[in-house]
């Protein structure tokens, strides 16, 4: 490789420059919407009305952000997105924790404590992943009503737990399938029970797949709109629903700068989760695939 670059130094360099140019071009293309959102969220409304969406702000103001967060009209009440942001947190965090633990336990049982029909059960759980949300709306509403948690945050947690479990189980099952069974046997001979093996042997080696599952679940549940709008009340409606209400609340003028700020606020947590743990995401997907 290096010998080839030496023999044709110019050709290699040109190719490399072209490659980078193309990559930078694509990066700009994909970052453009984010730029538009950011730039316009810190402009006064008059400046946007002048019609130049692409321009940098002439007057820098964080007023739209403050408005979107705590003052803007969402539906009828002028609360801003703040209460809904907490609604989302209160829904996402428990759901992610519950689903990750249950998914890990499922994966453990399906690979290391197999029983007759384990594969059929797993197949059915996988099938659950591919049932469209819309089909489940009415049955879910019936169940939530029956349990008396319709319209509550816990109701949403339950729905998301049911929907997230299929994928979480798939992730952990495939990861644990590559985990050496001899380790489990060694631990059994050492006297470790079901949960001791799970917490002391299996979980400490599950870092990458836990990260993958958490990112996947966090993103999906945070971004969900349909369940939120169907089963959420004021006390439990998540951020996505509030954002929709914010944008579609007709109070005369369209406050684009506030809408942009709100949209960024709504997307921020998933962005942060991904940036913080993204490198584990890729590594986790790889290790699950390659590890023999």
């Amino acid at each position: 490789m290096s010998a080839r670059t030496e023999s044709r130094p110019d050709g290699g360099r040109v190719l490399r420059a072209l490659l980078y140019a193309a990559l930078i071009l694509f990066a700009i293309y994909y970052l453009l919407p984010l730029y538009v959102m950011l730039a316009n969220s810190v402009k006064p409304l008059e400046e946007i009305r002048q019609g130049n969406m692409m321009a940098l702000p002439q007057v820098l103001t964080f007023e739209p952000w403050a408005q979107a967060w705590s003052e803007a009209k969402v539906g009828v009440a002028a609360t801003g997105l703040k209460p809904y942001f907490w609604n989302s947190i209160k829904m996402v965090v428990p759901a992610v924790i519950i689903v990750t633990i249950l998914g890990a336990l499922n994966g453990y049982v399906l690979t290391k404590y197999t029983f007759r029909g384990a594969n059929i059960l797993f197949g059915m759980m996988l099938l659950g992943c591919f049932i469209p949300f819309q089909i489940a709306l009415i049955p879910a509403a019936r169940v939530l009503g029956f349990l008396g948690i319709a319209g509550t945050t816990w109701g949403l947690v339950l729905v998301h737990t049911a929907y997230g479990l299929g994928f979480a189980t798939l992730f952990f099952r495939n990861y644990y399938a590559a985990f050496p069974t001899e380790l489990i046997r060694a631990a059994r001979i050492d006297g470790a029970g079901f949960f001791t093996i799970f917490f002391r042997i299996l979980l400490p080696s599950s870092g990458p797949i836990i990260v993958v599952t958490v990112i996947w679940l966090f993103t999906n549940i945070w971004n969900d709109f349909l369940f939120g709008v169907s089963f959420g009340d004021f006390d439990s409606q998540p951020m996505t629903v509030a954002l929709n209400n914010l944008v579609s609340s007709s109070g005369g003028v369209k406050e684009y700068n506030v809408h942009f700020a709100g949209a960024i606020l709504a997307a921020l947590p998933t962005l942060i989760v991904y940036i913080v743990s993204g490198r584990y995401f890729v590594r986790g997907l790889m290790s699950g695939a390659v590890k023999g």
Binding site: E182, L183, A186, R188, I189, S205
Partner: peptide, 28 residues
């Protein structure tokens, strides 16, 4: 298995990867 008064050495050694050698030996 733990109550049979046996100990086993596995083909793949089956050492717990997250523990030190000391932890491995002392785990039981």
């Amino acid at each position: 298995p733990a109550d049979r008064d046996i100990a086993m050495v596995f083909q793949s050694y089956a050492l717990y990867p997250n523990m030190t050698v000391r932890g491995n030996i002392a785990f039981g």
